[in-house]
Computed example of a mutant assay.
Amino acid sequence: MTPTRLVVLAGPTAVGKGTVAAAVRERHPDVWISVSATTRAPRPGEIDGVHYHFVDDATFDRLVADDELLEWAVVHQRARYGTPRGPVDVSLAAGRPSMLEIDLQGARQVRRTMPDAVFVFLKPPSWDELVRRLVGRGTEDDEERARRLDTARDELAAESEFDVTIVNHEVHAAADELVALMMLGPERHDA
């Protein structure tokens, strides 16, 4: 059975996409994970080239104009995020299990250009837990938190657009479930 090579992981803000991706990176180094470009400033502890490629607006504009992004979007009415196309192509050409950790808008764009990918929705155990995680990060002020929670309500409503849902009860379990899914054959996504 041929492993699924590209998985697209998306879900609402503060669901733990980045944390689950970090756990996949740590526990399954054979899986390649794309590093997105963004125009937002780094959060405490984030490293350029590891968590994101932090770029200015002019650099992002050039990436868009030169068609160097597989997908891109304005997120939370502020910063732009996008997936550099080149590294994805190289990883897939090498036959390496690969994952994109992106937002809902980006997942929709990738579905149009790479419909054979497996689209995984990462869901919180409950709305209250999502709110607790967002508040617990302590990286957004009250206005930004409210904006992100409004966006999260819309994002949660998009779950049916995805092939598979994983509930993020516990980070390592979610990461292992995601990698197990990558290793199933394409005909097994509904398992």
Rank of each mutant, 00 (worst) to 15 (best):
R25W: 13
V74Q: 04
V31R: 06
V118F: 13
D61E: 12
V164L: 06
L9H: 00
M1P: 13
V74T: 09
G82Q: 10
E101W: 02
V7S: 11
M183R: 15
A41W: 01
A117W: 03
R132L: 07
T151P: 00
R133V: 09
L100W: 03
F121Q: 06
V75H: 10
D30R: 15
L130I: 03
G138H: 04
H76D: 14
G45F: 00
E144Y: 00
D142Q: 14
T139R: 14
D150P: 02
S34C: 09
I166H: 03
R5K: 09
R27V: 05
R108W: 04
V179T: 01
R148Q: 09
D56F: 13
L92A: 04
H189T: 12
R5D: 09
R111C: 00
E140P: 01
D128R: 15
W127R: 09
T113I: 08
V15D: 04
Y52L: 08
V64R: 08
P29T: 12
Q105T: 05
P12C: 06
E155W: 07
R85Q: 10
G106D: 00
L92N: 03
A22C: 08
T83D: 05
M114D: 03
L9P: 14
D61R: 14
G45E: 05
R27G: 07
E170S: 15
A180Q: 02
G16Y: 04
P115A: 01
D154K: 12
M114T: 06
R108A: 06
V90R: 15
A93P: 10
V171L: 13
P29G: 13
W127K: 09
T39F: 02
D154S: 15
H76Y: 07
G11K: 08
L184A: 11
D30A: 10
D150Q: 05
A22N: 01
R112T: 10
G82K: 03
H53Y: 14
G138L: 12
A41R: 12
P29M: 11
E26C: 08
D103G: 14
L100G: 07
A173H: 10
P115I: 01
W32T: 15
P124E: 04
L156F: 04
P186Y: 07
A175C: 05
N168H: 13
D56E: 11
S36N: 13
L6I: 06
A21Y: 07
D66K: 06
L156K: 02
K123W: 05
A23W: 06
V110F: 02
R27P: 02
G86W: 12
T113P: 04
V75I: 11
T59H: 08
D163E: 06
G136Q: 00
V179S: 05
P12V: 02
E71M: 06
D128Q: 08
V31I: 13
T38I: 08
D30N: 10
E46G: 01
D30S: 11
H76R: 02
A23C: 06
W127V: 03
D48P: 01
L92T: 06
G136I: 13
L9K: 05
D176A: 13
V179E: 00
A79L: 00
A93Y: 10
